[in-house]
C-alpha cells in the first residue's frame, strides 16, 4: 500500500473542494452561456457584438491567464470602484469566488456555443405550433424550447464539465486549496513528488469516471420522451 504520510485526509478535503469549485463554476457558466446564447440569437447588433467579443476573447486566451487575471486584476478593479464611491473599505473576492468566476467565464464562453447550436436545432415549426395553440412566448420557451435545448445540449455540456473539472487544477496557482494545491503541499513535506502527483492523477481519473457515469444517467433521463425518427 502507498504510504501517504498522513496526508490522506488533506487530499480528500482537496478533492471535495475541487468538486465544489467545479459545480460552482458550472452553475455560473450555465447562466452566462444561456445569456450569451440569447444575446447572439437576439439579432440586436450591440448585444451580438458583446456576446461575440466575449466568446472570442475567452476562447483565445489560456485558462491559466484568465485565472491569474481574475485573481489579481478583479480585486484591483473592484477596490478601485469602491474607492471612487468614496469608500475605503476593501472589496474582497475570496479565492473560491475568484476561482469560480474565472472558470465560470471560460465555461460560459464554450457553453454559449453549445446552447446556440441547440436552440437552432429546434425546428421553428414547433414554436409556431405552440403559438397556434395559444401558448404565450414565455410559456412556449419554458415548455417547448427549453426541455429540448437541454436534451440536445447535454452531451456538449457534459464534455465541457469534464474539461472544467480538470481546469480546476489551475486555481491552485491562485491559492485555492483544492486537490492540486494540497498535493503540492504534501510534496513539499514528504519530498516524494512522484508518489503524490501519481495519487492526484488517480483521484482526478476517479472523479472523471464518476462524472462520466452521472452524465450518462442524466442523458438517459433527458432522452426519456424522445425516440429518434430514423430507426438506427
Amino acid at each position: 500500500m502507498i504510504d501517504l504520510h498522513g496526508f490522506g485526509s488533506q487530499l480528500a478535503m482537496g478533492a471535495a473542494m475541487t468538486v465544489e469549485i467545479a459545480l460552482g463554476a458550472c452553475a455560473l457558466g450555465l447562466v452566462l452561456g444561456l445569456g450569451t446564447a440569447a444575446m447572439r440569437l437576439s439579432g440586436i447588433k450591440p448585444l451580438v457584438g458583446v456576446a461575440k467579443t466575449y466568446t472570442t476573447v475567452i476562447r483565445g486566451i489560456p485558462e491559466l491567464l484568465v485565472v491569474l487575471l481574475v485573481y489579481f486584476g478583479s480585486a484591483r478593479i473592484l477596490t478601485g470602484i469602491a474607492e471612487s464611491f468614496g469608500s475605503d473599505d476593501y472589496v474582497e473576492l475570496s479565492p473560491f469566488v475568484a476561482g469560480v468566476i474565472a472558470l465560470g467565464l471560460t465555461f460560459g464562453a464554450y457553453a454559449s456555443e453549445v446552447f446556440r447550436g441547440a436552440f437552432l436545432a429546434v425546428p421553428n415549426g414547433q414554436l409556431e405550433a405552440a403559438r397556434a395553440l395559444g401558448m404565450s412566448q414565455g410559456h412556449a420557451f419554458r415548455r417547448i424550447l427549453l426541455p429540448q435545448v437541454w436534451r440536445i445540449a447535454l452531451p456538449g455540456l457534459g464534455n465541457l464539465f469534464l474539461v472544467l473539472l480538470k481546469d480546476t487544477s489551475l486555481v491552485s496557482v491562485a491559492g485555492m486549496e483544492e486537490l492540486m494545491r494540497k498535493t503540492s503541499i504534501a510534496v513539499s513535506f514528504t519530498k516524494e513528488p512522484f508518489t503524490f502527483y501519481a495519487v492526484a492523477t488517480v483521484m482526478y481519473l476517479g472523479m472523471t469516471v464518476i462524472c462520466t457515469a452521472a452524465l450518462h444517467i442524466m442523458e438517459r433521463r433527458a432522452n426519456l420522451g424522445y425516440r429518434p425518427l430514423t430507426t438506427a
Binding site: 492540486m180 513528488p193 512522484f194 492523477t201 482526478y204 472523471t208
Partner: peptide
C-alpha cells in the same frame, strides 16, 4: 487516452518534471 484525457495537464506535467526526478 483514458489516462491523459481524464486528468489535468498540470498534474501530468508536474508528474513528469518533479515526479520522475524522485528516482
Amino acid at each position: 487516452i483514458f489516462v491523459f484525457r481524464g486528468s489535468p495537464l498540470l498534474v501530468q506535467m508536474f508528474l513528469l518534471y518533479y515526479g520522475l526526478s524522485q528516482f
